[in-house]
Amino acid sequence: MYEDYVKIRDKYTDCFNDSQTEILDKYVDYHTGPDTYNLPDNIKKMAAELNKAGLEFREMGEGFTEIHSLPGYYESVFKNKVTPDYSAYISQMAKDNKENYAINGGLMITWEELGDRLIVWENLMNKYPKSQLIKSITDNYYSYLSDYLLGMDSDLIYDSEEGKIFDDKMEEYNRIIKKYPNSRTAKKTKELIAAYDAHTPEDQIGEKLNLRR
């Protein structure tokens, strides 16, 4: 029921986004400061109606705005109505979606938050290996792990000029290794550090790590 509900709601939300392109294209122009907007009355009314349906305007970066479900919407609908694996999954998705994860190829949460998020998904992967959600759980984990170890377009891991991993990334890697020494995340992090210490070319790091191995 949850999966069907999400699929149908996403379909209708996508259609709604397509039908409101004129409003969405102009929405960024109402932005007057951090988290502040000067919305026309008709947009205020629309935002209030969206909120009643568990939807919101969300800026996605580069001038794009989309209509999304509120982060905790599915959790409020399905609380105490699903099995523990689904409950844990829905709850974590709500937490992950509270804010934009990345914009313009750069991380919008801290690297420490990303590390802790990885451990949560790894624990879910280990706790519910036979869940019907295991593919989604696993895909989420490895997507985050790829960003964590290989970086993003605007968030690089390795300082080529200095010949070392950036200090802030190294500090986070040391934290995760110390705090969760037996985790898969720590194991792969150690492999990354070892690969750079062995002067593996940057374009070969991903193949060397083979994240899903």
Rank of each mutant, 00 (worst) to 15 (best):
Y2E: 10
D4E: 10
R9I: 05
R9Q: 11
R9K: 14
D14K: 11
C15D: 11
C15Q: 09
C15P: 02
F16Q: 14
Q20A: 10
Q20T: 08
E22H: 14
E22G: 05
L24W: 06
D25C: 09
Y27D: 04
Y27C: 08
V28Q: 09
Y30S: 15
G33K: 01
G33Q: 03
G33S: 15
P34F: 05
P34S: 00
P34V: 02
T36A: 03
L39P: 09
P40G: 14
N42C: 10
N42Q: 04
I43S: 13
I43G: 06
M46W: 05
A47G: 04
A48M: 06
A48L: 06
E49K: 12
L50C: 05
L50N: 02
G54K: 03
G54P: 00
E59D: 08
I67F: 00
H68L: 14
L70T: 12
S76F: 04
F78Q: 01
F78V: 00
K79P: 00
K81M: 00
D85M: 04
A88N: 07
A88K: 12
I90F: 05
Q92P: 03
A94F: 01
D96W: 05
K98T: 11
K98N: 12
E99A: 13
N100C: 09
Y101E: 00
A102Y: 06
G105P: 13
G106T: 15
G106N: 14
L107M: 06
L107N: 10
I109G: 11
E112Q: 14
E113V: 10
D116S: 02
L118A: 11
V120P: 01
V120K: 07
W121S: 10
E122H: 06
E122N: 07
N123R: 11
N123K: 13
M125Y: 07
N126H: 10
Y128L: 02
Y128G: 01
P129E: 09
L133A: 05
K135N: 08
S136M: 11
S146Q: 13
Y148T: 08
L149S: 00
L149P: 00
L150C: 04
L150S: 12
M152P: 01
S154D: 13
L156K: 12
I157G: 07
Y158N: 00
Y158D: 00
D159L: 06
D159V: 04
E162I: 04
E162R: 15
G163C: 02
I165H: 00
D167T: 08
D167M: 12
D168K: 12
E172N: 06
Y173G: 04
Y173K: 09
N174S: 10
N174F: 01
P181W: 14
P181C: 08
N182P: 03
T185D: 08
K187Q: 13
T189C: 07
T189V: 04
E191S: 13
L192K: 10
L192W: 12
I193M: 10
I193V: 13
Y196Q: 11
D197V: 01
A198S: 06
T200F: 05
E202K: 06
E202I: 13
D203H: 12
D203L: 10
Q204S: 09
G206N: 03
E207F: 13
E207Q: 14
K208W: 00
L211N: 02
R213F: 11
R213A: 15
